[in-house]
Simulated scan of single mutants.
Amino acid sequence: MFRTDPETPDAFRTPVEEVFIRNHLGRRPELDADSWSLTVEGLVERPLRLDFQALRGLPQTRFTAVHECFGNPLQPTVPTRAVTNLEWEGVPLAEVLALAGPRPEARHVWLEGADRGDFAGESDVSFLKDLPLEQARTEVVLAHRMNGEPLRPDHGHPVRAVAPRMFGTNSVKWLTRIVLAAERPEHLFTTRLYTRVLPGESEARPVREKDVSSKLLSLRDGSTVPAGVSELAGYAWSSTEVTAVEVAVDDADWQPAELDGRGPDPSWQRFRLRHDLAPGAHRIRCRATDSAGRVQPLTGDRNAVHEIAVVAV
């Protein structure tokens, strides 16, 4: 299920009601926190089954991070602009892995949700993702709260994985099973979909770390606005810190925008530029650069520059 993307509100933390919903496999599973459990199995010294109370009893962490949909895996270069910024609370995956004791030959962590269904011509498949063990141990959190409230059913209640520097496809909802393995799983959502060839490379790699991107939010596409000085503002994000944002109006040169720093959490960064809009129709674009030197492409890929059209009167 890929719903039409709502307008992301111009707020640092996205209200839960405005968060996009993605579900590849039809009806969402109905899970109850009182009967839910999580198994940890495979190449571990001590296989585990944790209930919700046991998980809540482990050390907790809280952070704010960008949550972005990669897009339809059948159309991987089409921009979606589905992005939010959320506060998460949960248990670092490292705490759970420490209880299970990964064996020396374990190299990968498989994360599996309770949802099953049909997708892309395959029947009765689960939603399964995998990450290298060390990366998963360092980055993944098993979240049970979002924006200070328990996860809602559409967002993975009662527990989901959250990989804050990665696209949302890696943040498995309705998490019920973790497997440690020596190899990656051959699966629809690991090796056949959600892969891509990055610029300058020749081999496909899994869709994981976020691209550099930005979105204009202070003005709505297609809106009518007062002529005169207007603040052209929005948010920029990446898997690393964004170091610059530029804004272009019509066919004029790109202008550097004022950009907030990211801070300790992997959240998005606000940018702003005051510009005098003459009466008439205008095209406004923004593009971001991150600390890895990546720049948003003008066209042709999922993170191509965001463009809106407004009429000043």
Rank of each mutant, 00 (worst) to 15 (best):
A257S: 09
L259Q: 05
Q53Y: 00
V247N: 10
A82C: 14
R28L: 15
R208I: 06
P164N: 10
W254H: 05
K215N: 13
N23M: 02
F119I: 04
N170S: 12
H275W: 15
D154P: 05
P9M: 13
E122M: 10
V109L: 10
S123H: 15
T77K: 09
V197Y: 02
V162A: 07
S230Q: 15
V247T: 12
K129I: 11
P199N: 13
G293P: 07
T169W: 06
E307H: 02
H157R: 14
L93C: 07
D221F: 07
P9Y: 12
K210N: 06
L188M: 06
G71A: 10
E105H: 05
T64W: 00
W36I: 03
L58Y: 00
K129Y: 06
R184W: 07
V141F: 00
V249Y: 01
V66P: 08
G71F: 09
D276S: 13
A106N: 05
R302E: 05
P132H: 02
E139G: 04
Q53T: 14
T138A: 15
A244N: 04
D115Q: 15
H306F: 07
L217I: 13
P158R: 08
S214N: 10
A309L: 14
E45P: 01
T191W: 01
T77D: 09
V159I: 06
V311C: 06
A278L: 09
G293Y: 03
V229L: 12
L219N: 11
S123I: 04
A82F: 02
L180M: 08
G261E: 12
D260Q: 15
D51A: 09
P206L: 15
R22G: 01
S126R: 14
N170R: 15
Q53S: 13
T191P: 01
R196T: 04
I308S: 10
V109K: 08
E241R: 15
G42M: 02
V207S: 03
Q269C: 06
M146H: 01
V159K: 00
S123F: 13
G113H: 08
V78F: 02
T195S: 12
L74Q: 12
E246C: 07
R27Q: 10
H144C: 12
E30V: 11
F2M: 03
R302N: 08
A252I: 03
K215W: 06
A252N: 11
L55M: 05
E149G: 01
F127R: 12
D5E: 09
V91Y: 00
E241C: 05
L175R: 03
L216D: 01
P164S: 10
L111A: 13
R152M: 07
P150V: 08
L74W: 03
A33F: 01
G42A: 04
E7N: 04
F20M: 10
V125M: 08
V245E: 08
D253W: 07
V172R: 04
P15N: 09
